[in-house]
Nucleic acid binder design. Structure first.
Lengths: 192, 192
DNA sequence: TAAACAACCTAACGTTCGTTAGCAAATTTT
DNA sequence: AAAATTTGCTAACGAACGTTAGGTTGTTTA
């Protein structure tokens, strides 16, 4: 399945790798151009600004995460099953796009307004999905945690470290990682 | 307990806040000077370079984390007790220095060599402490996890998110946070 | 009281930055 | 074959960057 990327997509992909490795601010347009084998000014035939690249990566990934958890959610299922599904979906997006995920997770603060504010709104809505599952689990006694906000942040941060070490050819594949993490984090919610 | 900071310490503290908020690369010496109410050039009466500030913060925090877990470790205790103690110590350092912790966790990649390499060595040695506790717990059947490296990274990343939301006057104090996190993460290791 | 030091200043250095203007060649579309 | 689009170039802009040189002032030490 060879996919031919448009020049704009190539730029975005190369930029993503650099933003991840050195950070948005420490990556210059000349660095990016050098990596692409062209001049810095040439990039502006395809994009409007350096920040536009960051915007596209951040909001594309936000979309991916939303679509993934929406697709697998079944409001009729138990809280455990719903949370397990959401965790698995989240891990799948993370492992399928490690570089873009890293940018999504750590470089969004370099977005200017109104994108910065919009991003934070989206992120909170995403976390809300997890909060509501956990709240439902608490109310019927399935989970025992002092605070659902606290639990969600711990779970998500436990997941969001994956991009730093995940390698597609490592000893665990994405499904195994997702399963192990889900078991481990779900068990943590069922305190005795 | 009023503590008078030397000018150098004031610079370091102010820089830490800026590095945390905007990142190391996006913080200029003129920003820092402006925050201090002086000219950028004046800062160089007290420090050698911008990176020196980052180095001091990163390695000071590395020391704090090491001292904290060394002080509470009892190799004779059970793996659960040891891990609980380490988690509590780690959380205490994090909550007592949220800004410096954020810099320590996310800005170290802007260190130049040989500091960059030295930092990674220290970090790995720190994680090794946790790995060994968990390995001990696995070998006597106290913990059931597929991979201790995996478990350590999940635990530490679950803890290292604290700095983003912890407020000293929030509804949970540092001890409660540490206790809740320890319970939640320890339970996750004792899979049935 | 003289010497040493701490703290800050103005001015400027050489470099790098994101970006624009204007143009040329190749490719695709009509 | 003409027109439009894509992709790239050189040259340069104004601004911002980390840092140095050299000097001034006030405070502390000998």
């Amino acid at each position: 399945m060879e996919v031919t990327l448009s020049r704009k997509e190539q730029i975005e992909k190369t930029a993503t790798a650099l933003f991840r490795k050195r950070g948005f601010s420490a990556t210059s347009m000349r660095d990016l151009a050098n990596e692409l084998g062209i001049e810095a000014a040439s990039i502006y035939s395809h994009i409007r600004s350096k920040e536009e690249i960051l915007q596209r990566v951040c909001f594309r990934m936000a979309n991916e995460f939303f679509e993934a958890i929406d697709k697998v959610d079944d409001p009729e299922a138990t809280a455990s099953a719903r949370l397990q599904a959401a965790i698995t979906a989240h891990v799948q997006v993370l492992t399928k796009n490690t570089e873009a995920s890293a940018v999504f997770l750590y470089e969004w603060r370099h977005l200017s307004e109104p994108y910065h504010a919009e991003f934070l709104t989206l992120r909170d809505r995403y976390e809300k999905h997890f909060r509501e599952i956990i709240k439902a689990g608490i109310s019927i006694g399935e989970f025992k945690v002092p605070d659902e906000k606290f639990a969600v942040l711990t779970i998500l941060s436990g997941l969001n470290w994956i991009h730093t070490w995940y390698k597609p050819d490592g000893k665990m594949n994405a499904e195994e990682i997702a399963a192990n993490l889900a078991t481990m984090l779900l068990n943590g919610l069922k305190q005795t």
